[in-house]
């Protein structure tokens, strides 16, 4: 395929200098990624520790000792903000549990059992990627209202779980197919029922896929604004994203530094997950789960 090309490295360089150029480019790229990736987060952190009166006056790059403060975090004690965050946590946990349980069982069925229309079912599942929160949310608003799920966290959990399904089910399906069937058969030989074999042998081995699906569901729930905005219209039940936006519109006193402080708190869980669980995440994504 490349026999016609002149020998040697790129741009006619020797392999050696090609390597040096490559290393330099890599270093430069890394620097840019760090700068662009970290910078906004750094900015959020430093503003969170800056006295709010000074934020709007001038740009400060470092939280100087004279304007350094922890007072911004007092906003966490605000009952309204506390409600929003609590609701977000409940919705996230509810979504994760629903998504993991439902997708594990469905993935197992797709991987191990044969039933009519199985392949078509899997394909139809992919249509789920087309579900736009706004397209679904507008009609769902009336439907939820008529069956009493409007303004309930359950209603939001159901909606967000459905949105995670195409990814989670495909992931579980493909992942379970990589587990040798003999493991399960060994359990059956040992006297385990199908359910017991699933529980004792398949589920523990699905850990990377479970974590990947859980992280994906978490990202969706933690991120969600549109569904919560439409399906949780009242202030008491709503989650962080729409809550804080409404608070900004209504509140007399809500300085940006306070918003940065609360944002920082909300950023910590994703940051920790991203650091400690990235290997599971990549392993999960490797099975071509789309």
């Amino acid at each position: 395929m490349s026999s016609n090309e002149p020998p040697g490295g790129m741009f006619g360089l020797s392999y050696d200098s090609e390597s040096r150029v490559f290393e330099a480019l890599k270093l430069l790229s890394t620097a840019i990624i760090v700068l662009v990736g970290v910078w906004p987060i750094y900015w959020m952190i430093q503003l969170a520790f800056t006295e709010y009166e000074t934020v709007e006056d001038a740009v400060t790059v470092f939280p100087l000792p004279e304007i350094f403060t922890l007072d911004n975090f007092a906003v966490l004690a605000d009952p309204e903000m506390y409600t929003y965050m609590f609701n977000t946590v409940v919705v996230a946990i509810g979504t994760i549990v629903t998504v993991v349980v439902v997708s594990l069982i469905a993935g197992y069925g797709l991987a191990r059992l044969s039933f009519p229309q199985k392949e078509n079912f899997a394909r139809i599942l992919l249509i789920g990627y087309l579900f736009s929160p706004i397209v679904i949310g507008i009609p769902l608003y009336q439907i939820w209202r008529s069956i009493g799920l409007l303004d309930t966290r359950i209603g939001l959990i159901i909606a967000l779980s459905a949105l995670s399904m195409p990814f989670a089910v495909w992931l579980m399906w493909k992942y379970i197919m990589t587990i040798p069937e003999a493991h399960e058969e060994a359990a059956w030989v040992d006297g385990a029922s199908r359910w017991r074999g699933f529980r004792d042998v398949v589920v523990p081995q699905c850990r990377p896929a479970i974590i990947a699906a859980a992280l994906f569901a978490f990202a969706l729930a933690w991120n969600d604004f549109t569904f919560a905005q439409i399906l949780l219209p009242s202030t008491e039940t709503t989650t962080f994203a729409p809550g804080v936006l409404r608070a900004m519109g209504q509140a007399q006193f809500l300085p940006d530094a306070h918003l940065m402080a609360i944002s920082l708190v909300m950023t910590l869980p994703p940051l920790l997950f991203a650091y400690f669980m990235q290997s599971y995440l990549l392993k999960g994504f490797q099975v071509r789960a789309l």
């Binding site: 040798p180 003999a182 493991h183 058969e185 060994a186 359990a187 059956w188 030989v189 006297g191 385990a192 029922s193 004792d200 042998v201 523990p204 081995q205």
Partner: peptide, 19 residues
């Protein structure tokens, strides 16, 4: 069903439970 046959079976890929 296999569960009620009280057999032992050694598999080609050994199939020890890895976890």
């Amino acid at each position: 069903p296999v569960q009620e046959r009280n057999i032992a079976l050694l598999f080609q890929d050994i199939a020890l439970y890895p976890h």
